[in-house]
Design a protein around this nucleic acid. Structure first.
Lengths: 145, 145
DNA sequence: TTATAATTTGGGTGAATACCAAACATTGAT
DNA sequence: ATCAATGTTTGGTATTCACCCAAATTATAA
Protein backbone atom coordinates (compact mmCIF):
# COMPACT_ATOMS: atom_id res chain seq x y z
CA UNK A 1 0.00 0.00 0.00
CA UNK A 2 2.42 2.68 1.18
CA UNK A 3 5.79 2.08 -0.36
CA UNK A 4 8.36 3.65 1.93
CA UNK A 5 11.47 4.88 0.14
CA UNK A 6 12.83 6.63 3.19
CA UNK A 7 13.21 9.83 1.18
CA UNK A 8 9.69 11.18 1.64
CA UNK A 9 10.44 13.75 4.31
CA UNK A 10 12.71 16.77 4.64
CA UNK A 11 15.35 16.76 7.39
CA UNK A 12 13.34 18.90 9.77
CA UNK A 13 10.23 16.81 9.39
CA UNK A 14 12.27 13.71 10.14
CA UNK A 15 13.45 15.39 13.33
CA UNK A 16 9.90 16.22 14.34
CA UNK A 17 8.48 12.76 13.75
CA UNK A 18 11.30 11.13 15.69
CA UNK A 19 10.77 13.57 18.53
CA UNK A 20 7.05 12.87 18.67
CA UNK A 21 7.48 9.11 18.62
CA UNK A 22 10.02 9.29 21.42
CA UNK A 23 7.60 11.31 23.53
CA UNK A 24 5.00 8.60 23.08
CA UNK A 25 2.09 10.94 23.71
CA UNK A 26 0.36 14.05 22.44
CA UNK A 27 2.95 16.75 21.88
CA UNK A 28 2.39 20.47 21.80
CA UNK A 29 3.87 22.82 19.25
CA UNK A 30 5.89 24.71 21.80
CA UNK A 31 7.50 21.60 23.19
CA UNK A 32 8.92 20.90 19.78
CA UNK A 33 9.84 24.46 18.87
CA UNK A 34 11.63 25.02 22.15
CA UNK A 35 13.49 21.73 21.86
CA UNK A 36 14.73 22.64 18.42
CA UNK A 37 15.16 26.31 19.27
CA UNK A 38 13.04 27.65 16.43
CA UNK A 39 10.03 29.91 16.41
CA UNK A 40 6.72 28.17 17.22
CA UNK A 41 5.30 29.39 13.92
CA UNK A 42 8.01 27.52 12.07
CA UNK A 43 7.15 24.30 13.83
CA UNK A 44 3.44 24.88 13.43
CA UNK A 45 3.73 25.10 9.66
CA UNK A 46 5.73 21.89 9.44
CA UNK A 47 3.27 20.07 11.69
CA UNK A 48 0.39 21.21 9.48
CA UNK A 49 2.18 19.79 6.47
CA UNK A 50 2.91 16.51 8.24
CA UNK A 51 -0.76 16.31 9.17
CA UNK A 52 -1.80 17.07 5.60
CA UNK A 53 0.43 14.21 4.43
CA UNK A 54 -1.15 11.81 6.89
CA UNK A 55 1.65 11.37 9.40
CA UNK A 56 -0.01 13.31 12.20
CA UNK A 57 -3.35 14.19 13.65
CA UNK A 58 -3.29 17.83 14.58
CA UNK A 59 -5.94 19.30 16.84
CA UNK A 60 -5.35 23.06 16.71
CA UNK A 61 -4.25 24.53 20.03
CA UNK A 62 -4.16 21.03 21.51
CA UNK A 63 -1.25 19.24 19.96
CA UNK A 64 -0.26 16.49 17.55
CA UNK A 65 -0.34 12.71 17.64
CA UNK A 66 1.12 10.21 15.23
CA UNK A 67 -1.35 8.47 12.96
CA UNK A 68 -0.87 4.73 12.53
CA UNK A 69 1.07 5.46 9.36
CA UNK A 70 3.07 8.16 11.09
CA UNK A 71 3.97 5.78 13.85
CA UNK A 72 5.18 3.08 11.49
CA UNK A 73 7.10 5.67 9.56
CA UNK A 74 8.66 7.18 12.67
CA UNK A 75 9.70 3.71 13.79
CA UNK A 76 11.57 3.37 10.55
CA UNK A 77 13.17 6.79 11.10
CA UNK A 78 14.41 5.76 14.54
CA UNK A 79 15.68 2.44 13.27
CA UNK A 80 17.48 4.20 10.43
CA UNK A 81 19.09 6.64 12.82
CA UNK A 82 20.21 3.92 15.21
CA UNK A 83 21.48 1.51 12.60
CA UNK A 84 23.54 4.21 10.93
CA UNK A 85 24.86 5.55 14.24
CA UNK A 86 25.85 2.06 15.33
CA UNK A 87 27.57 1.55 12.00
CA UNK A 88 29.62 4.72 12.28
CA UNK A 89 30.47 3.94 15.90
CA UNK A 90 32.29 0.87 14.59
CA UNK A 91 34.63 3.12 12.63
CA UNK A 92 36.20 5.31 15.24
CA UNK A 93 33.39 7.72 16.02
CA UNK A 94 32.15 8.03 19.57
CA UNK A 95 28.46 7.47 20.25
CA UNK A 96 27.88 11.18 20.38
CA UNK A 97 29.85 11.88 17.24
CA UNK A 98 28.08 9.09 15.38
CA UNK A 99 24.66 10.35 16.45
CA UNK A 100 25.45 13.89 15.48
CA UNK A 101 26.96 12.92 12.17
CA UNK A 102 24.03 10.71 11.24
CA UNK A 103 21.59 13.42 12.21
CA UNK A 104 23.02 15.54 9.44
CA UNK A 105 22.44 13.12 6.61
CA UNK A 106 19.93 10.47 7.69
CA UNK A 107 17.07 12.07 5.77
CA UNK A 108 18.86 11.12 2.56
CA UNK A 109 19.32 7.42 3.21
CA UNK A 110 16.93 5.03 1.50
CA UNK A 111 15.00 2.37 3.36
CA UNK A 112 16.38 -0.14 0.92
CA UNK A 113 19.93 0.67 2.01
CA UNK A 114 18.99 0.66 5.68
CA UNK A 115 17.36 -2.74 5.34
CA UNK A 116 20.41 -4.19 3.66
CA UNK A 117 22.79 -2.73 6.22
CA UNK A 118 20.51 -3.87 9.02
CA UNK A 119 20.50 -7.35 7.58
CA UNK A 120 24.28 -7.40 7.08
CA UNK A 121 24.73 -6.36 10.72
CA UNK A 122 22.49 -9.20 11.87
CA UNK A 123 19.63 -7.00 13.01
CA UNK A 124 21.33 -5.70 16.13
CA UNK A 125 19.09 -5.02 19.10
CA UNK A 126 21.05 -2.26 20.77
CA UNK A 127 22.35 0.91 19.17
CA UNK A 128 24.50 3.64 20.62
CA UNK A 129 21.53 5.82 21.44
CA UNK A 130 18.79 3.34 22.24
CA UNK A 131 17.23 0.04 21.35
CA UNK A 132 16.65 -0.99 17.77
CA UNK A 133 13.32 -2.61 17.05
CA UNK A 134 12.82 -4.79 14.02
CA UNK A 135 9.15 -5.59 14.21
CA UNK A 136 8.35 -3.77 11.04
CA UNK A 137 11.75 -4.38 9.49
CA UNK A 138 11.27 -6.45 6.40
CA UNK A 139 13.67 -9.35 6.72
CA UNK A 140 14.91 -9.82 3.23
CA UNK A 141 18.11 -11.75 2.86
CA UNK A 142 20.23 -10.84 -0.08
CA UNK A 143 22.26 -14.06 0.03
CA UNK A 144 21.90 -16.91 -2.46
CA UNK A 145 20.30 -19.74 -0.56
CA UNK B 1 44.84 28.31 7.10
CA UNK B 2 41.82 26.77 5.40
CA UNK B 3 40.01 24.59 7.87
CA UNK B 4 37.99 22.10 5.89
CA UNK B 5 34.85 20.91 7.66
CA UNK B 6 33.53 19.08 4.63
CA UNK B 7 30.25 20.94 4.90
CA UNK B 8 31.20 24.04 2.95
CA UNK B 9 29.47 23.19 -0.30
CA UNK B 10 25.95 22.38 -1.39
CA UNK B 11 25.27 18.97 -2.99
CA UNK B 12 25.30 20.29 -6.54
CA UNK B 13 28.55 22.14 -6.06
CA UNK B 14 30.10 18.97 -4.68
CA UNK B 15 29.01 17.18 -7.85
CA UNK B 16 30.53 19.86 -10.03
CA UNK B 17 33.90 19.94 -8.30
CA UNK B 18 34.20 16.15 -8.41
CA UNK B 19 33.32 16.20 -12.09
CA UNK B 20 35.93 18.83 -12.87
CA UNK B 21 38.67 17.07 -10.93
CA UNK B 22 37.92 13.80 -12.68
CA UNK B 23 38.20 15.52 -16.06
CA UNK B 24 41.63 16.77 -15.09
CA UNK B 25 41.53 19.70 -17.49
CA UNK B 26 39.65 22.86 -18.36
CA UNK B 27 35.95 22.09 -18.48
CA UNK B 28 33.27 24.01 -20.33
CA UNK B 29 29.92 24.91 -18.86
CA UNK B 30 28.01 22.86 -21.37
CA UNK B 31 29.99 19.71 -20.65
CA UNK B 32 28.83 19.90 -17.08
CA UNK B 33 25.26 20.96 -17.73
CA UNK B 34 24.73 18.23 -20.29
CA UNK B 35 26.26 15.61 -18.00
CA UNK B 36 23.92 16.56 -15.19
CA UNK B 37 21.02 17.25 -17.54
CA UNK B 38 20.34 20.77 -16.35
CA UNK B 39 20.16 24.05 -18.18
CA UNK B 40 23.57 25.63 -18.91
CA UNK B 41 22.46 28.76 -17.10
CA UNK B 42 21.98 26.75 -13.93
CA UNK B 43 25.48 25.39 -14.13
CA UNK B 44 26.90 28.76 -15.06
CA UNK B 45 25.55 30.37 -11.90
CA UNK B 46 26.97 27.65 -9.70
CA UNK B 47 30.36 27.88 -11.39
CA UNK B 48 30.40 31.62 -10.83
CA UNK B 49 29.76 31.06 -7.16
CA UNK B 50 32.45 28.40 -6.92
CA UNK B 51 34.83 30.82 -8.58
CA UNK B 52 33.83 33.62 -6.21
CA UNK B 53 34.58 31.27 -3.30
CA UNK B 54 38.00 30.47 -4.66
CA UNK B 55 37.52 26.90 -5.81
CA UNK B 56 37.64 27.66 -9.52
CA UNK B 57 39.16 29.99 -12.05
CA UNK B 58 36.48 30.90 -14.52
CA UNK B 59 37.38 32.51 -17.82
CA UNK B 60 34.03 33.56 -19.31
CA UNK B 61 33.14 31.71 -22.50
CA UNK B 62 36.27 29.59 -22.10
CA UNK B 63 35.73 27.29 -19.16
CA UNK B 64 36.71 26.58 -15.59
CA UNK B 65 39.79 25.15 -13.90
CA UNK B 66 40.32 24.15 -10.30
CA UNK B 67 42.41 26.51 -8.24
CA UNK B 68 45.00 24.90 -6.00
CA UNK B 69 42.54 25.13 -3.15
CA UNK B 70 39.75 23.74 -5.33
CA UNK B 71 41.93 20.83 -6.31
CA UNK B 72 42.76 19.93 -2.72
CA UNK B 73 39.14 20.28 -1.81
CA UNK B 74 37.94 18.16 -4.71
CA UNK B 75 40.44 15.48 -3.75
CA UNK B 76 38.82 15.37 -0.35
CA UNK B 77 35.39 15.16 -1.99
CA UNK B 78 36.45 12.18 -4.08
CA UNK B 79 38.06 10.49 -1.11
CA UNK B 80 34.92 11.04 0.93
CA UNK B 81 32.75 9.57 -1.78
CA UNK B 82 34.96 6.53 -2.23
CA UNK B 83 35.48 5.80 1.44
CA UNK B 84 31.77 5.99 2.14
CA UNK B 85 30.88 3.90 -0.91
CA UNK B 86 33.42 1.28 0.07
CA UNK B 87 32.00 1.26 3.58
CA UNK B 88 28.44 0.69 2.41
CA UNK B 89 29.57 -1.97 -0.03
CA UNK B 90 30.70 -3.97 3.00
CA UNK B 91 27.12 -4.05 4.22
CA UNK B 92 25.22 -5.70 1.42
CA UNK B 93 25.03 -2.91 -1.11
CA UNK B 94 26.42 -3.46 -4.59
CA UNK B 95 29.04 -1.05 -5.89
CA UNK B 96 26.44 0.77 -7.91
CA UNK B 97 23.96 0.93 -5.06
CA UNK B 98 26.63 2.15 -2.67
CA UNK B 99 27.78 4.86 -5.06
CA UNK B 100 24.26 6.04 -5.71
CA UNK B 101 23.34 6.00 -2.05
CA UNK B 102 26.42 7.93 -1.03
CA UNK B 103 25.83 10.47 -3.78
CA UNK B 104 22.62 11.41 -2.06
CA UNK B 105 24.12 12.29 1.29
CA UNK B 106 27.86 12.77 0.95
CA UNK B 107 27.61 16.56 1.04
CA UNK B 108 26.55 16.27 4.68
CA UNK B 109 29.42 14.19 6.00
CA UNK B 110 32.15 15.98 7.89
CA UNK B 111 35.81 15.64 7.07
CA UNK B 112 36.41 14.72 10.68
CA UNK B 113 34.14 11.70 10.33
CA UNK B 114 35.64 10.71 7.00
CA UNK B 115 39.15 10.89 8.44
CA UNK B 116 38.19 8.69 11.35
CA UNK B 117 36.44 6.14 9.17
CA UNK B 118 39.33 6.21 6.73
CA UNK B 119 41.73 5.56 9.57
CA UNK B 120 39.59 2.77 11.03
CA UNK B 121 39.49 1.10 7.62
CA UNK B 122 43.27 1.25 7.34
CA UNK B 123 43.37 3.86 4.60
CA UNK B 124 42.27 1.53 1.82
CA UNK B 125 43.74 2.19 -1.61
CA UNK B 126 40.94 0.90 -3.78
CA UNK B 127 37.28 1.81 -3.57
CA UNK B 128 34.33 0.46 -5.48
CA UNK B 129 34.43 3.28 -8.00
CA UNK B 130 38.09 4.17 -8.24
CA UNK B 131 41.34 4.55 -6.37
CA UNK B 132 41.49 6.29 -3.03
CA UNK B 133 44.38 8.66 -2.56
CA UNK B 134 45.57 9.64 0.88
CA UNK B 135 48.26 12.17 0.11
CA UNK B 136 46.36 14.98 1.72
CA UNK B 137 44.60 12.76 4.22
CA UNK B 138 45.63 13.79 7.69
CA UNK B 139 46.77 10.61 9.39
CA UNK B 140 45.51 11.04 12.89
CA UNK B 141 45.19 7.92 14.93
CA UNK B 142 42.50 7.94 17.52
CA UNK B 143 43.93 5.02 19.49
CA UNK B 144 45.66 5.32 22.85
CA UNK B 145 49.30 4.67 22.21
C1' DT C 1 32.63 38.24 -42.00
C1' DT C 2 28.65 36.79 -40.81
C1' DA C 3 25.60 33.03 -39.37
C1' DT C 4 25.47 29.54 -35.98
C1' DA C 5 26.54 27.76 -31.65
C1' DA C 6 27.98 28.33 -26.95
C1' DT C 7 27.82 31.03 -22.89
C1' DT C 8 26.27 34.36 -19.71
C1' DT C 9 22.88 37.50 -17.53
C1' DG C 10 18.57 38.69 -15.73
C1' DG C 11 14.22 37.47 -14.29
C1' DG C 12 11.11 33.97 -12.27
C1' DT C 13 9.65 29.64 -9.76
C1' DG C 14 9.25 26.27 -6.04
C1' DA C 15 10.82 23.79 -1.93
C1' DA C 16 12.70 24.05 2.59
C1' DT C 17 13.53 26.61 6.59
C1' DA C 18 13.30 30.45 9.26
C1' DC C 19 11.52 34.95 11.59
C1' DC C 20 8.09 38.53 13.04
C1' DA C 21 3.63 40.56 13.99
C1' DA C 22 -1.08 40.07 14.42
C1' DA C 23 -5.09 37.29 15.23
C1' DC C 24 -7.04 33.81 17.82
C1' DA C 25 -7.90 30.17 21.50
C1' DT C 26 -7.16 28.40 26.08
C1' DT C 27 -6.63 28.67 30.83
C1' DG C 28 -5.91 30.16 35.31
C1' DA C 29 -6.46 33.74 38.78
C1' DT C 30 -9.45 36.59 40.78
C1' DA D 1 -17.56 33.73 35.26
C1' DT D 2 -14.52 36.88 33.31
C1' DC D 3 -10.53 38.54 31.59
C1' DA D 4 -5.62 38.93 31.32
C1' DA D 5 -1.64 36.20 30.43
C1' DT D 6 0.01 32.51 27.79
C1' DG D 7 0.18 29.49 24.03
C1' DT D 8 -0.91 28.68 19.14
C1' DT D 9 -1.85 29.73 14.48
C1' DT D 10 -1.92 32.64 10.28
C1' DG D 11 -0.04 35.66 7.02
C1' DG D 12 3.69 38.04 5.32
C1' DT D 13 8.57 38.21 4.34
C1' DA D 14 13.51 36.48 3.76
C1' DT D 15 17.21 33.32 2.44
C1' DT D 16 19.44 29.46 0.24
C1' DC D 17 19.47 26.05 -3.19
C1' DA D 18 18.42 24.57 -7.52
C1' DC D 19 16.11 24.95 -11.51
C1' DC D 20 14.08 27.10 -16.10
C1' DC D 21 13.38 30.54 -19.89
C1' DA D 22 14.42 34.46 -22.80
C1' DA D 23 17.53 37.83 -24.19
C1' DA D 24 22.11 39.49 -24.73
C1' DT D 25 26.79 38.52 -25.55
C1' DT D 26 30.98 36.14 -27.28
C1' DA D 27 33.31 32.68 -30.00
C1' DT D 28 33.93 29.99 -34.00
C1' DA D 29 33.46 27.98 -38.30
C1' DA D 30 31.69 28.20 -43.09
Amino acid sequence: MKEITGLELSPRKVDYLKFILKKGRTVKTTEISSSFKVDPSTTCKALNELAASGYLDHVPYKGVDLTKHGELYAEFLIRRHRIMSLLLSHYGLSSEEACEEVSRFEAHISKEAVDKICSAMGHPMVGVCGEITHEKCIHIDYRNE
